[in-house]
């Protein structure tokens, strides 16, 4: 498989209240076409900054980020984005939001085709009945469904997701994870997905690969392959022993120093 995304020695500095800060420090990363990777780190570790660079909203201070071998110079509809909140325009109905995305990605598409496409994807996320509603009349989970429908309907090669389920309640988060996985797996050509989260279980369930970032400044701390076969079924996966071992190891890695400190405390007692 070819390299879809290449990040080479990426550093991002920013100035806040006259103080220089480094959000990302020398991050190098390659994502293969059709791969689903999660970037995990605690709040403020620069994982959203990394995604902003891929979105084309933030220029790198040093190093470069390439898509299909071409440096990113700005946003583009070949990258679909789902944010944690405010992905949708509140003055457009669910359908109008999806239609608007389709029109940006496929200029010149006929009104009829665009509408069919919008309704197809609203149907896929189970929201055809709510197509005429404004986002303010939709729950947080439903809004994210619409955002996903829009990103998929735009048929971009890459899907960038910035903690998309972070503001959704636990039950709906589970449902949305399964829906995302199902939609991604059933695409004729699987999209390359970069998924930001601080939820390790979510990362394991969804991804082919997990990148752990260190805290400020963000550096790649671990690059872990997740080999569980697909399609994955939550109950089956989470009930298995391999999963338990994998999870324990990952958590130990993630909480690294803190755990060791706790063990030492135990020894003293």
């Amino acid at each position: 498989m070819t390299n879809k995304i290449e990040i080479k020695n990426l550093t991002v500095n920013y100035v806040e209240r006259g103080v220089n800060n480094t959000a990302l420090d020398g991050v190098s990363l390659t994502v293969k076409e059709g791969q689903f990777i999660s970037i995990v780190g605690s709040s403020g570790c620069g994982k959203s900054t990394l995604l902003s660079v891929l979105e084309g909203l933030l220029p790198p201070s040093e190093g470069e980020a390439l898509i299909d071998g071409v440096p990113i110079t700005g946003p583009g509809p070949e990258r679909g984005v789902v944010f944690q909140q405010y992905s949708l325009f509140p003055w457009m109905t669910a359908r109008a939001n999806v239609l608007f995305g389709i029109r940006q990605a496929k200029r010149g598409i006929s009104h009829k085709d665009a509408r069919l496409l919008a309704d197809e994807y609203l149907g896929k996320v189970g929201l055809l009945d709510a197509a005429g509603r404004y986002p303010s009349r939709l729950s947080g989970g439903m809004q994210q469904r619409v955002a996903i429908a829009r990103a998929l309907a735009m048929d971009s090669d890459i899907l960038l997701m910035d903690e998309p389920f972070g503001a959704v309640d636990a039950k709906n988060r589970t449902i949305l994870q399964e829906l995302l996985l199902e939609l991604w797996q059933n695409e004729a050509e699987r999209k390359t997905v970069v998924f930001i989260t601080h939820d390790l279980d979510e990362a394991i369930f969804l991804s082919d690969r997990i990148i752990l970032l260190t805290d400020s400044p963000g550096r790649v701390y671990r690059d872990i392959k997740v080999d569980f076969p697909r399609p994955r079924y939550r109950d089956e996966l989470m009930g298995s022993l391999i999963y338990d071992d994998f999870r324990r190891e990952l958590f130990a890695d993630f909480f690294g120093d803190k755990n060791r400190a706790a063990e030492n405390d135990g020894v003293i007692i």
Partner: peptide, 24 residues
């Protein structure tokens, strides 16, 4: 975030003023 979500869709400048800024 509203502006960002419009920018990542690749909305052109004029279209941005009409479809996004004016409404927001």
């Amino acid at each position: 975030p509203i502006i960002n979500s419009a920018r990542v869709l690749g909305v052109p400048k004029i279209s941005m003023l009409w479809h996004v800024t004016l409404h927001a």
